[in-house]
Simulated scan of single mutants.
Amino acid sequence: MTPDRRWTAKDLGDLTGRKFIVTGANSGLGEVTARALGGAGADVLLACRDTAKGDAVARSIGPRAHVRRLDLADLESVRSFASTVDSVDVLINNAGVMAVPFRRTADGFEMQFGTNHLGHFALTGLLASKVTDRVVTLSSGLHQIGRIHLDDPNYERRSYRRWPAYGQSKLANLMFALEFDRRLAAVGSELKSVAAHPGYARTNLQGRTESFQDTVMAIGGKMLAQSAEMGALPELYAATSPEVTSGLYIGPDGRSELSDYPTIVGPSSRARDRAVASALWSKSEELTGVRFAPVGG
Rank of each mutant, 00 (worst) to 15 (best):
D43P: 06
R162W: 01
G30Q: 05
S60P: 08
K283D: 10
M217S: 11
G17N: 11
K192A: 03
L142E: 14
N204C: 03
D214E: 05
V244E: 04
P262A: 12
L29K: 09
A196T: 06
L15D: 12
L142M: 15
H149N: 04
Y200L: 15
R134Y: 12
T16E: 08
H117N: 13
L91G: 12
A9H: 02
G119Q: 09
L72V: 04
L126W: 04
R18A: 08
I250C: 13
A9C: 01
S83V: 02
D50H: 02
P294N: 00
L126V: 03
P198M: 01
V22M: 06
T33V: 05
F180Y: 13
T203M: 02
Y155H: 05
R157P: 06
W7F: 04
K19P: 07
I61V: 14
I250Y: 11
S259H: 12
G231Q: 11
P267Y: 05
S139F: 10
L46E: 07
T23E: 12
H117P: 11
R270Q: 02
T245M: 13
V97H: 05
T132R: 08
R291F: 07
A40I: 03
P234V: 05
L70E: 07
G207A: 00
A99V: 14
L45Y: 13
E179V: 09
L123T: 09
R158W: 01
G125L: 13
T105G: 06
G297Y: 00
A47S: 15
R162S: 08
G231D: 12
L37G: 00
K53E: 09
R35Q: 13
L258Q: 08
A238Y: 00
F20K: 04
V78P: 14
G167Y: 02
N94F: 00
P3T: 09
L138M: 11
M111P: 00
P101E: 02
R79V: 01
L126T: 03
P267L: 07
F109L: 05
G289K: 13
S246Y: 01
G146Q: 07
F109I: 03
S87N: 04
G30N: 06
T209V: 02
D214R: 02
T124E: 09
A25S: 14
Y160H: 01
G141S: 07
E286A: 15
A271P: 08
E285Q: 14
G119H: 10
A275F: 03
D181Y: 10
F109W: 12
M1W: 00
I61N: 12
L15E: 13
R49M: 02
A165Q: 04
T124C: 10
L191E: 00
A196N: 08
A65C: 05
S60R: 15
L171Q: 10
G254M: 01
